[in-house]
Amino acid sequence: MAERTEPRIILHPHSRRVRILAGDTLIADTRNAIELRETGYPHRHYIPKEDVDMAKLSISSTVTHCPFKGDSTYYSLLDIDDVAWSYERPIDEMQAIAGRLAFDADKVTELAE
């Protein structure tokens, strides 16, 4: 009998409130996040752009590729480089996170209820 393995990435709708702060500055506030759980990585909340203060962010020159999600675009916040990233055109299996932003928990404070 074949051993059943968990998928590498699992997406979970997250309807509880998620806020992102840089110091005392609120950057994002949503009740419409998607929690992405990827083997070997911390869980990440992907937040819709309409719930992010995009005026505070600027696109950085950093671009990365993940074979399981696709190509990412990074964003900086004032003096915090690459504070967030987004998959604008992810692979087919990850379309639910298209255009949403995830934040680097080492660079900002994430408050999830």
Rank of each mutant, 00 (worst) to 15 (best):
A2G: 12
A2D: 11
E3C: 05
E3Q: 02
R4E: 00
T5Y: 05
P7S: 15
I9S: 03
I10V: 15
L11R: 04
H12R: 11
P13L: 05
H14W: 14
H14L: 08
S15C: 05
R17L: 01
V18E: 04
I20Q: 01
A22T: 14
G23W: 08
D24M: 12
D24R: 10
T25D: 06
I27H: 01
I27L: 06
I27S: 01
I27Y: 03
I27N: 02
T30S: 02
R31P: 08
A33D: 13
I34R: 03
E35W: 05
L36Q: 01
L36A: 13
L36E: 00
E38A: 04
E38P: 03
T39Y: 04
T39M: 05
G40K: 12
P42Y: 10
R44G: 07
R44A: 12
R44C: 07
I47D: 02
P48G: 01
E50V: 12
D53V: 09
D53M: 11
D53A: 09
M54L: 15
I59D: 08
S60I: 02
S60W: 14
T62Q: 05
V63M: 06
C66G: 06
C66W: 08
C66M: 07
F68A: 08
S76H: 09
S76C: 12
L77T: 13
L77W: 15
L77D: 07
L77M: 08
L78N: 08
D79M: 06
I80C: 08
D81H: 10
D82E: 09
V83A: 01
A84Q: 04
A84V: 06
S86Y: 00
Y87L: 06
Y87R: 07
Y87A: 03
Y87N: 05
E88M: 05
I91L: 15
D92L: 10
D92R: 14
D92V: 14
E93P: 06
M94C: 08
M94E: 03
Q95Y: 10
A96P: 07
I97Q: 00
I97D: 01
I97T: 07
I97A: 12
A98Y: 00
G99M: 04
G99D: 11
R100I: 14
R100A: 09
L101I: 11
A102G: 03
A102C: 12
F103C: 10
F103W: 09
D104Y: 09
D104P: 03
K107F: 00
T109H: 01
T109F: 01
L111I: 13
A112I: 04
E113W: 15
E113T: 13
